[in-house]
Design a protein around this nucleic acid. Sequence first.
DNA 1: AGACCTTCCGAAAACGTTTTCGTGTTGAAA
DNA 2: TTTCAACACGAAAACGTTTTCGGAAGGTCT
Lengths: 341, 341
Amino acid sequence: MKRKVTLKQIAKELDVSISTVSKSLKDSAEISEDTRQKVQAFAKLYNYKPNNIALSLKNKKTKTIGIIIPEIVHHFFATVISGVENVANEHGYNVIVCLSDESFDKEVINMEMLANGSIDGFIMSLSKETQQKRDFHHISEVINQGMPVVMFDRVTNDILCDKVIIDDNLSAIQAVQTLIDKGLKKIALITTVDYVSVGKLRTEGYLKALKSNDIKIDENLILKIEDIEHCDEAIEDLIKNQQIDAIFAVNELFAVTAIKSALKIGLKIPEDIAVIGFTDGIISKYSSPSITTVSQNGIKMGGKAAKMLIERLESEDEDDEHYRTEVIETHLVERESTPTL
Amino acid sequence: MKRKVTLKQIAKELDVSISTVSKSLKDSAEISEDTRQKVQAFAKLYNYKPNNIALSLKNKKTKTIGIIIPEIVHHFFATVISGVENVANEHGYNVIVCLSDESFDKEVINMEMLANGSIDGFIMSLSKETQQKRDFHHISEVINQGMPVVMFDRVTNDILCDKVIIDDNLSAIQAVQTLIDKGLKKIALITTVDYVSVGKLRTEGYLKALKSNDIKIDENLILKIEDIEHCDEAIEDLIKNQQIDAIFAVNELFAVTAIKSALKIGLKIPEDIAVIGFTDGIISKYSSPSITTVSQNGIKMGGKAAKMLIERLESEDEDDEHYRTEVIETHLVERESTPTL
DNA sequence: AGACCTTCCGAAAACGTTTTCGTGTTGAAA
DNA sequence: TTTCAACACGAAAACGTTTTCGGAAGGTCT
């Protein structure tokens, strides 16, 4: 077991000063050819690598990005991390991941832990509880200390910072319009409770699309799910009790659950009921029938967020208060759960 | 914008020494009640929090765990991270995630980056390329420097360290036996190429199960997939050209692809063909029909790995060479893709 | 009055770097 | 011989902590 070697040890062995070793390894012209060679050879032999922690302390930069998301066992969030990792690595950054578990307290604790020097900046998506409480003091505090934050997907207008989102509203309108264009009239909506920002926006999009096509809104066709674990019964009831042509679901899980329920009852998809989901994940792709969805490119979103963060970190003027909100475009991936014209 | 306050600044403001401030905040008996109160009040007012980097440098401990996995957009690996996060947080550790992208080079680079002081220990699963090359020098190097490593799932006997695995062999035997017990004889295998350790073990399990039931092994029923992106055609061919009762697939993706192919041809599941997969992910659960799988509890695996690592990190005797291999039990989750007796 | 013990606090080292500045030696020019 | 530049290197500060040790001030005891 040979422990990591430090500048000090090399200096001692070679009987020179620490400064000389450091400069030699950096090919400084201050050091004679001779000494440089000697030091470099020795360093290579002992596989010297500078200690990251010491560097971080000195440079006041950790070259690390902190990500805080509600959960990781979730296709969309996983793709976002993947996107962040990619561009982070390209720029020599590491990524430290914390899970809020949809809990406000955990989100706060995690942010505070990381804010004490561990990272250079945050990329985050709000937990449900945080969105419900509308308490963002932990975020503004961090920003106030000069640490940049980029929010994605689940964002809030109450905080001024860079953001990356999709146009949930427009995407929902387009999805519903697609159903209408296929001649479907009685379109149900399966959505989340309103405090989830993206759910709310998608719901609004659904309403707008119906209105602009002069379709009367039927509250009985709108299902707001609180408890995602037990959505099955509610969805099954909806399909059984209402005459429905199509379903627009604000996420994959609702979409696939709706399909399973419909199949169970004996309905055919897409002939009897068409389904469009949101977030193009693994479920939509591999479900039978496969599901038509609004594709939300997590890789792109994560990549963009990372790029914005790193740009800010490495920009000259520290506190540029000019924050941007990037909108990632979506598109509809048509699969087997919707009829072809 | 108020930047983070340091001991030095507090000391200056209060006209005492840095040591006094530090001790006061730690409630040291060395400091008078008076001074202590004064310092603590001031620190609280300015929301003082010690700098993690400085602490890491001093203590030679980062309280951070590094995870290196092949990919994160993958249900199983995501659950493992989740498991690691849980117990890591409980013990005050953070988690830094790196993706090897199934590439040997990336795995090496990531390990080297993190090994230079950024973390206290590794939890990792080998990339495909690493398993193929059988080159593990980067891992033994890290271990040699005194940094503990825990490997999970995709492990190797060439490295001595703590490991967490499932009994792939036995689990496969049980799965295939289940099919046989249901009266199925012509059982196909869809597996990976041999260098993937878990794929190989599961394949062996399949073979053993057939042998012990005196069923002749038909090479035509064994499909080894190299390129996972284009497995569709091969699988469809297999189903079309061979008379098959059942399919044992070594992962979810193969299983669901097989089902989709069979349905496409017009076969009924499970009546015409039964299917058992491996890894109980989101696909198996939400597929139609849902898929019977060998459940491999990623949360448990990650949690166990984290526990082993932390125990080693915090154990008294530094270089305990007594390495353990924990086996996480699996169980078969029976769903719609297999017939009930 | 001297010896000694508390109480309270500060100086300094240590962790591993980088970088600025100072300094001793050498050689050449005046 | 003196003067000055060029060269090669080392000392020290800085980043923010924790902790050991030493010491000043004051009190108590003989």
